[in-house]
Nucleic acid binder design. Structure first.
Length: 273
DNA sequence: ATTCCATGATCAG
DNA sequence: TGATCCTGGAATC
């Protein structure tokens, strides 16, 4: 389940398996059959990520644009590939490896120009070395929208999802309901720097861990609880449980059609009221 | 067996 | 704000 770190990790995974090699491309499910036929047998020249978007390059002016959405998954394996199930939208195969894509929001063949248009509408990505947070700050510092909503707006900052949103706000003791324009530049710079760090760790370990072990009370014992999403977190999906730091009950509320989680003790403010 | 829910995003109204 | 698209695992009946 994908936030930006997942997509960047997938770009690396595609490079190591397919870059520079001819790839058999098919769409067992059929929804990408036409696109697959056009690039079947071509060399994968590049694999890139920006935010939650994955771009697989097949020669000049041809990219497969993949967006996993909420349900999409990419699974890798060694050849021989098993018979595909009927939900496999895209299958890539070379001599040694295969990749199966299921349930994506987007899987389409696009041109350079279309790819550029996608980059243009995305904000800076903490995982792209050439990006920095100042462009995001231009928007945030002028916005009356809550910082929680801004962090999920991919035009503002690309790659942050519901877990990183909740966790980074907790780590910086920021009330999710504060307006963007009420943040200080120093607060934003610290949030950005932390996202750069946390998301790089996410790529490396292929999961989201945000808890500093020394923060966990002795009483919890080690190893600490691992959330059923697979990583160690402070507040995400811990509604009505005790905060690891102050013991307050973690709160939850809907915000922009997503579930928000925060600690009213560590992140003081209006809490939406 | 059925419903619910999820680390996403778009579109209509 | 709500409906909708995509899949699969967990919870519930």
């Amino acid at each position: 389940m994908p936030e930006g770190h997942t997509i960047h990790r997938l770009a690396l995974d595609h490079r190591s398996r397919f870059e520079g090699e001819r790839v058999r491309v098919s769409s067992p499910q059929g929804k990408f059959a036409d696109g697959a036929a056009l690039i079947d047998g071509h060399v994968m020249t590049r694999a890139e990520a920006h935010g939650k978007h994955l771009f697989l390059g097949f020669g000049q002016d041809r990219w497969v644009h993949v967006h996993l959405g909420l349900f999409g998954k990419l699974g890798f394996g060694a050849t021989p590939a098993p018979p595909p199930t009927d939900t496999v939208r895209l299958r890539l195969v070379n001599a040694t490896a295969y990749a199966d894509l299921r349930g994506p929001t987007a899987c389409a063949l696009i041109t350079d120009a279309e790819k550029h248009a996608i980059h243009d509408r995305l904000g800076p990505d903490p995982l792209r070395p050439e990006d920095d947070g100042s462009r995001a700050w231009q928007r945030i510092s002028r916005s009356r929208t809550t910082i929680a909503a801004l962090l999920l707006d991919q035009k503002v900052i690309a790659g942050v999802g519901n877990v990183y949103r909740a966790e980074v706000l907790f780590r910086h003791r920021i009330d999710p309901y504060r307006a963007g324009r009420d943040l200080t530049r120093a607060e934003w710079d610290a949030l950005w720097a932390d996202l750069v760090f946390l998301m790089a760790e996410g790529v490396r370990h292929n999961r989201i861990d945000t808890v500093r072990p020394e923060h966990l009370p002795e009483a919890m014992g080690r190893p600490p609880r691992v959330d059923d999403h697979g990583g160690e977190v402070y507040v995400y999906r811990r509604a009505h449980q005790g905060c690891h730091i102050c013991g307050s009950e973690i709160r939850t509320a809907g915000l922009a059609a997503r579930n928000l989680f925060w600690c009213p003790g560590c992140q003081p403010g209006t809490g939406g009221g």
